[in-house]
Design a protein around this nucleic acid. Structure first.
Length: 299
RNA sequence: GGUUCCUUGGCCGAGUGGUUAGGCACCGGUCUGCAAAACCGUUUACAGCAGUUCGAAUCUGCUAGGAACCU
């Protein structure tokens, strides 16, 4: 093996594109381990609905950050960045390669390019910022930001997105200075090589695979899985495609056939959003097979 | 055979003479701490034909398809 230094190989692509299988093949070929980059497969109670690696797949290659969280745990892209940076040195002791496989684009971005350091928001400030929104809506959020962070308002990409406004406000309150002043706009240079591979099957093929996978999930017992976590439906970890629709079915507000069709529809929508994220990333190398992946790595 | 009613874009669905209904999908986009989240943009109509009218998805007639009831 040539001396190229430690390398992180990212295997990404839209949901249902075959990332998991390819990553395993690649890992076996390279003799390295896999870090999952999937914001939902991390929750241990959702293996079926999130299409998490199966027991056989987990046995084939050591995986990290799969089923390691409880639904009530707080987690974020910044947490992920830290977890991965902590994990990599250990994996590189055994191989110069490590594979990060998943479709949570913001998480991947946090690892590849870094994410600015922000204070951890206290429960009080989080609640206060949220209350500004629940009481006064977007208008009130903008009013508050006019005081806390006018620069953010001037540059915010989308003032209709209350989640982003609430976040800017809570961070500003926590830090005691404008949220926008904490953003460096700079990418972090990593002391290791990153190769970003992406799977991007033709749309019809992808949609067909997604449709079939939904049926397979239902057949594998996804309804029972969702039923078990139904009481926790208010948790953010369950604000997830597949579960939302089944919860509506349990509520009696949606019939079974419609719920299953919606899961397929929303999964397809999700896949397209992942693609949107990938399209603007000039560092991705599109591949469609193990051989192409190996070639891209230079093997 | 007769009577009555219905027919809006891929789907749902408002609109009864003079603005773009709207929603979802499709297609495109945003993204620096819950991101499988949240948000933004755009396209596609008025079953067909003829007529009334300055002007028809909206009124009239015929045709086609569908529904209910009657014989």
């Amino acid at each position: 093996m040539s001396v190229t230094g430690n390398t992180l190989i990212v295997v990404t692509g839209p949901t249902g594109s075959g990332k998991t299988d390819l990553a395993i093949q690649l890992a076996q070929k390279l003799g390295c381990e896999i870090i999952s980059a999937d914001s939902r497969q991390m929750f241990r109670d959702l293996p079926i609905g999130t299409a998490a690696p199966t027991a056989q797949q987990l046995a084939a290659v050591p995986h990290h950050l799969v089923g390691n969280l409880s639904l009530t745990d707080y987690y974020s892209a910044a947490c992920f960045e830290q977890d991965v940076l902590d994990l990599l040195p250990r994996l590189w002791q055994r191989s110069p390669y490590a594979i990060m496989c998943g479709g949570s684009m913001m998480y991947i971005d946090a690892v590849c390019n870094g994410i600015d350091l922000l204070p951890t928001v206290s429960d009080e400030n989080r609640a206060a910022a949220l209350e500004v929104y629940t009481r006064g809506g977007i208008e009130a959020l903008i009013e508050a930001l006019r005081v806390h962070d006018p620069d953010y308002l001037a540059t915010a990409p989308d003032l209709n997105n209350h989640k982003r406004l609430v976040h800017a406000l809570e961070i500003s309150m926590e830090a005691g200075r404008p949220y926008s002043s904490l953003l460096t706009g700079r990418k972090t240079e990593r002391p290791f090589r990153i190769i970003k591979l992406a799977l991007n099957p033709p749309r019809e093929v992808l949609f067909d695979r997604i449709n079939r996978r939904v049926d397979a999930m239902i057949a594998a017992g996804m309804e029972e899985e969702a039923r078990r976590v139904y009481p926790l439906r208010h948790l953010n970890s369950l604000n997830t495609v597949g579960y939302k629709e089944l919860f509506a079915m349990f509520d009696g507000t949606m019939d079974r056939e419609t719920a299953i069709a919606r899961i397929g529809k929303n999964t397809r929508v999700y896949a397209k959003k992942q693609l949107t994220w990938l399209k603007r990333d000039p560092s991705v190398c599109y591949i469609s097979s193990l051989d192409e992946a190996l070639a891209a790595i230079g093997m």
